[in-house]
Computed example of a mutant assay.
Amino acid sequence: MTSHIRFNQIAANDSWIRDDSQSIFNFSQISPATQYQFIDLIPIILAKEEQKYRLGEITSQTLRMLHSRLNANLGPYFGDMNLGQISSKDILGFIEHLDKQSIKPITIRQYLGLLKRILTLGVLEGWMENLPVFPKVRGKSIPRASLSVDQYLLVLRTAKALSHLNLANNQITHRNTANNVYVQNGPIPQEMIRLIRFMTNTFLRPVDIKLLQHKHIQIVEGKQCYLRINLPETKRHSGQVVSLRAAVRLYKTIRGEQLKIGHGNPNDFVFFPNVENRSKAIQIISYLFSRIVKAAHLEISSDGQKRTLYSLRHTAITFRLIYGHGIDLLTLARNARTSVEMIEKFYSSNLKAEMNVNLLQSKRTRRA
């Protein structure tokens, strides 16, 4: 394979998970005198990312996102540019190119991060002397929509009401059924009600719920009652999660019900264990939650943000910030497997002073 590979040739194969013979590129024939172009770096970044996928360091979704961004904007824009001539001015032009497509600042920053990684490879290969200066893209951080206590209770009541819907046998077809879970117009599974309560008592992300197995959970009962949850690393965060007390009784109920139907073993998934494809499982869960918030007329927050399954994690953290007595941000951040910076930027930023009016007006008392 020659060094000058056109981008449409690279992206012609829809499947980015190829065998080793397709993923290894020979650059030994490239002369140092060649004027290298941006497109010459694409096979290298692909080979490295595919190797990470095979080693389990990244997911297929991350690999597909790389494919999408190379194919949609990075390849077409920079493809024929000589590496030594790519300047800060070109990067500013790329930012304007993305902005004209109404791409959000956070996504533009992700594009620039990928571009920087690719050009860094050019420096390491000796094809560029140094990196151009990357301009900063400023954008307002928009917190995800959470739920107030009243809204949270309304979601639970709505889910319970939807779980009692009747669906005639002649209405059940392959068109409205997925993995034995009714996802269209049918009753909401009771499991969804427990899942909503579980997420707001454990601070877990949707990806954690997707991967959560019984072997990851240990019940601790003593002076304090809680679940000790040891999950695999997600979102580059590892470490234990300690649940609230309410999660203990809830988990016992969940596992007890599952043991009756042949699930609940250590390697079984905690939620929707009958759905073996976990990507499908989280899609079903997300769809069911969307049905619930839509029926409760809570699909969109007062700030115009759409409520998704992730809103339950946001709600859990927000509730602790409001009602947790004396809890510090570091403890909360570590338990939620995030950073203090993320707590301040995305969770505490939309708290209103009136939410903690009692604390604001409290007085210190003298010790006897």
Rank of each mutant, 00 (worst) to 15 (best):
Q305Y: 06
L309N: 01
T331F: 08
E299G: 00
L321E: 09
K294M: 08
R278H: 09
I322D: 09
M342R: 03
L329K: 12
D268Y: 09
E299F: 01
T308Q: 06
K306E: 12
I285W: 00
L321I: 08
R320T: 15
F271E: 01
T308E: 08
A316M: 06
T331C: 10
I284Q: 04
G324L: 10
I343D: 07
D328H: 12
V275F: 04
K306L: 08
A333S: 14
Y310A: 00
S286I: 04
T338F: 08
T308F: 02
V293Q: 01
L309G: 01
I282D: 02
F319D: 05
R334H: 15
V293K: 00
A281S: 12
H314N: 04
A296E: 10
K306I: 05
T338P: 00
F319S: 04
H297N: 15
Y323A: 05
L330Y: 11
H297G: 10
Y287D: 09
L298D: 04
R320S: 14
I300S: 06
Y287R: 11
S301I: 09
F271K: 04
L288I: 14
F271L: 09
V340K: 12
S286E: 06
Y310N: 01
G324H: 08
D268C: 10
R307K: 10
L329R: 10
A316Q: 02
K280Y: 11
M342Q: 04
R337F: 10
G324W: 06
S302I: 12
S302A: 13
I300F: 09
L309D: 02
A336M: 05
L329M: 12
T315G: 01
I284L: 10
I343P: 00
I300W: 09
S279M: 13
K294Y: 07
H314G: 02
E299V: 00
N335M: 07
F269T: 02
F289S: 00
I285N: 01
I292S: 03
L330V: 09
S290K: 10
A281D: 04
K280N: 15
K294Q: 13
K280E: 15
R337P: 00
E344D: 14
R291I: 13
A336I: 03
L288H: 09
K280D: 14
R291W: 11
D303T: 13
H297K: 15
T318P: 03
I327D: 06
Y310F: 03
D328N: 15
R334L: 15
V275G: 05
K306F: 03
P273G: 06
L298T: 02
F289H: 00
I282S: 07
